[in-house]
């Protein structure tokens, strides 16, 4: 197999405009934000000798009297209603533990999933014993955040037909801050694949299902072979996502789709080459700007 070899090149410096320098809203740990005591202490800050001080590197956000510092990169801080993609790490009594890129493993209670065979069914002791048949360690699921516990752990639910176990597809793990919050995070892209943009930075790419299976309650996974063309589309999308993430472009259906359209002229494997990546992302950004303006 011929490998693509390249010589090391000098890293391109990001062109910082004059306005970007000395920005007052960028702080580093230990920076005093204000010594005025009239403000409220939000996330990413602490009070040191009556001075409000930053504890993370990032952007200062003020909402009325509340001051927060939002770090550029962090683990997923879930909010109620967020769509997440996660992986089962543990099966416990009446609950599954799910890894969702959060600072503690999330909990999926047996009582907050739709079991096969109807909405209104009591959870019996038998269900508890057969939990591993529905979801076992290593399975991927999509779910919604139901509530947040006091220690920051998330409680999930899959009480809708769109959530549940994920079957054949590709998982891409990115930074949660790159996912744009939108009304819907499930998209059937016109290029022939579907995408779940989890708020936690986990993105699931899968072939668009033919029709929705009603009875299975989200535990049915199709094991039909996926056609080569579908797989190609999915791998192209995956590489596009990585390219967009490398250049810190916000991810939502439009940006992914534009990137896909511009990548068509290249081979799937070439998309990850730095120069191709840059070209595609540049075209995408341009089109997105045109669309906005």
């Amino acid at each position: 197999m011929a490998a693509d070899m390249r010589l090391p090149t000098v890293r391109k410096a990001v062109s910082l405009s004059v306005s970007a320098f000395d920005r007052k809203d960028l702080v580093v740990p230990g920076d005093v934000i204000t010594s005025d005591t009239g403000f409220m202490r939000g996330h990413g800050t602490y009070v040191d000798e009556d001075k409000l001080t930053a504890s993370v590197a990032g952007e200062v956000q003020r909402v009325d009297k509340l001051i927060c510092v939002r770090p550029l990169k962090t683990r997923f801080n879930g909010e109620v209603g967020d769509v997440v993609v996660g992986r089962i790490t543990e099966v416990q009594q009446k609950r599954w533990k799910v890894e969702t890129n959060s600072r503690l493993d999330s909990v999926l209670l047996l009582s907050s999933v739709n079991l096969p065979g109807g909405e209104l069914r009591r959870r019996s002791a038998e269900d508890e014993l057969t939990m591993r048949e529905y979801l076992q360690e290593g399975d991927l699921i999509s779910a919604e955040v139901q509530s947040v516990f006091s220690d920051g752990a998330l409680s999930l639910h899959t009480r809708s037909l769109k959530y549940g176990k994920l079957g054949q597809g590709v998982l891409v793990q990115l930074s949660p801050s790159l996912i744009k919050r939108q009304k819907t995070h499930f998209h059937n892209l016109p290029c022939g694949a579907s995408i779940i943009l989890g708020n936690n930075g986990f993105v699931w790419l899968y072939p668009t299902p033919e029709q929705q299976e009603e009875e299975a309650g989200g535990f049915y996974t199709s094991l039909e072979p996926v056609s080569l063309s579908d797989r190609e589309v999915i791998s192209r999308l995956r590489n596009c996502l990585l390219a967009l993430a490398a250049h810190k472009v916000l991810l939502y259906d439009t940006s992914v789709l534009y990137c896909y359209e511009f990548s068509v002229q290249h081979q799937v494997k070439d998309i990850l080459k730095p120069e191709v990546m840059e070209e595609i992302v540049m075209l995408t950004q341009q089109k997105l700007l045109e669309q906005e303006g």
Partner: peptide
């Protein structure tokens, strides 16, 4: 401090 500030600015410029 200089390194961190430089990094912050670069990333915030990239993410627009």
């Amino acid at each position: 401090d200089e390194v961190v500030r430089q990094h912050l600015e670069e990333v915030s410029v990239l993410s627009g």
